[in-house]
């Protein structure tokens, strides 16, 4: 069975090692370079809002302390700054950016009422408690206005955070995905088949063999 600790299933695999190879085209290099260069300061969120987003992101998608974290909050921030929207919303829910501001404001209020401090100061367990209540729609302060807290959780907060995290090469490496694939796609596509430019999973506890294969990925 594979090691259950996060980040240990594909030892040594880094999707970025393929960056200059035939699996990436110019356009992809350009797009990913821009994403990797995302600065950590907010452009859409206020400083206070941003602290809350950073804290929420670290609970929705916890990252190991052993590597450089994916700047999830900044990625969410850029999407809102560029007004890249999902394009659909429920009645009572404002457009993406406004929905975020409204939801963060309501969350902040709920947090202060329940714990007396801002969300990002809370213990992780308390943050999780609030997020779980939001997910189940149990946060019902009038500050939410017509937007249900569960809708905000599912369609905005958690969705945007999860999408931001899995838009990052670090996350791709973590799950052993092949990553960008053009012009070169794949050849071996049946069960248990792996191209030499794909992640190798630890099999039968043999970490060394998997690492050796992953170091050769280009």
């Amino acid at each position: 069975m594979p090691d259950s600790r996060p980040g240990t299933r594909f030892p040594g695999y880094d999707v970025l090692s393929k960056r200059q190879g035939p699996s990436w085209n110019e356009k992809t290099r350009e797009v990913i370079a821009k994403r990797l260069a995302t600065a950590s300061e907010p452009r859409f969120f206020t400083a206070d809002e941003f602290l809350t987003v950073v804290a929420a992101a670290s609970r929705i998608v916890p990252q190991p302390p052993t590597r450089r974290p994916v700047p999830i909050a900044a990625l969410v921030d850029r999407k809102l700054h560029l007004m890249q929207s999902d394009g659909y919303r429920l009645p009572g829910t404002p457009r993406d950016g406004e929905a975020w501001r409204l939801g963060l404001k309501a969350l902040d209020l709920e947090t202060r009422v329940a714990f007396g401090v801002p969300f990002h100061i809370l213990k992780e367990a308390d943050q999780d408690f609030l997020l779980a209540r939001m997910q189940s729609g149990e946060l019902r302060d009038p500050a939410w206005t017509d937007m249900a807290s569960d809708v905000f959780f599912r369609m905005r907060l958690a969705r945007d955070i999860v999408l931001a995290y899995y838009s990052h090469p670090t996350a791709w490496s973590e799950i052993g995905w092949g990553g960008p694939a053009s012009p070169r796609g794949y050849v071996r596509i049946d069960y248990d088949e792996r191209d030499p430019w794909e992640a190798a999973e630890v099999k039968g506890g043999n970490v060394v063999a998997a690492r050796r294969k992953n170091n050769r990925v280009r």
Binding site: S23, W24, N25, E26, K27, T28, E30, V31, I32, R35, Q84, S85, D86, G87, Y88, R89, L90, P91, R95, L163, S167, G179, P180, A181, S182
Partner: peptide, 30 residues
């Protein structure tokens, strides 16, 4: 030339102009 191998970037292909969805089973658009 224009297409990246990237889910986020390629949302540029989707119709994401503002739309309201309601009913008992609101649709996901895009």
């Amino acid at each position: 030339e224009d297409f990246a191998s990237d889910e986020s970037e390629q949302t540029k292909l989707y119709w994401t102009d503002d739309r309201i969805v309601d009913g008992a089973n609101p649709l996901q658009m895009g």
